Amino acid sequence: MISWIAPIVLLIIWEALARFGFIEPYVLPAPSKVLMTAIKLSYSGTLANDLLVSLTRAAVGFAIGGSIGFVLGTLVGFSRLAEAFIDRSVQMVRAIPFLAVLPLVIVWFGVGETQKIFLVALGVGFPIYVNTTLGIRQVDPKLVELGRVQGLTTRELIRRIILPGAMPSILTGVRFSLATAWLALVVAETIGAQSGLGFLAMDAREFLRTDVIVLTVVIYALIGVGADVIARRLERSLLSWHPNFGAAR
């Protein structure tokens, strides 16, 4: 409850400044105005449809990019030879900003769904790749040696020692990727989209509907908070054996 005090106080101050004319409505509408806009768009079905479209794009892109990032990170984490073949190329692509690669992606895929899902997958894959590799490399060698002494096979060693030991780092990558997915989607939906939250915001910009633009920003923030809550609960579930996570349940 304490963590919500600051956001609530900011909302109250924002509402007061807007109502007393210190902030012009076209610059930043009052929270009550944004809420009424959300209710109207919800009744018309526009908000639900655009929200569902954006969530679907983010989920599909996250599944594709996350899977690729995890597989590549696992290969590089276990094999120096795989690192020699894969890591440098991945790091070079990771350094390219979304806006720099966007024109090329449009040439490849046009401005349809494939372009948007590709950008989300591209952004999501790197944090999971880096943290998976790091997590596997940071597993205590003494634990691995202990597993070998106990007669564990390679498969059992990976399943019972290495992957559980790397899981905190992997889940940290998942949390970063959830935030990156929405960043990539915002960039993708500003170009040629016919639906989605990004399209809703860009369409509102044409008519100077600041209330709709602020609403989309608030929705992005709420989705980000919700995704982070889900990731935290996933951490507590998968890492219940870990003293730093199990105690927080």
Rank of each mutant, 00 (worst) to 15 (best):
S89T: 15
R249Q: 15
G112W: 14
Q91E: 15
V174P: 08
F85K: 11
R236D: 14
S67K: 01
L99T: 15
S195I: 02
A188F: 05
L11S: 05
T74Q: 00
G147F: 01
V120D: 02
L35E: 02
I161E: 02
I68W: 00
L75M: 14
I12F: 08
S44L: 04
V186D: 08
I8S: 08
L51C: 04
Q115V: 00
G112K: 06
V105Q: 00
I2Y: 10
A58E: 04
L157T: 11
Q194R: 05
G192N: 01
L134S: 12
I219R: 08
A201W: 11
K40D: 11
G69Y: 06
R205N: 06
A221I: 14
A59M: 07
I213M: 11
L102W: 04
A247L: 15
A231T: 13
A48P: 13
S89D: 13
K40N: 14
S237P: 05
P141G: 12
L104T: 07
F207R: 14
E189V: 05
L208D: 14
T46G: 07
D211E: 10
G196P: 07
E113Y: 08
R233Y: 15
L52R: 07
S67V: 07
R232P: 15
Y43K: 07
R209S: 11
G151E: 14
G123W: 03
L119P: 04
R249Y: 12
Y220P: 08
L185K: 04
D203Q: 09
T154G: 08
G66R: 03
T216L: 10
R236P: 13
G66W: 06
P97G: 01
F207D: 05
D50V: 06
M36I: 08
P103I: 04
A201F: 12
G226S: 08
I2V: 13
F109Y: 14
A193N: 00
S237Y: 15
E15I: 04
A184R: 07
G110R: 01
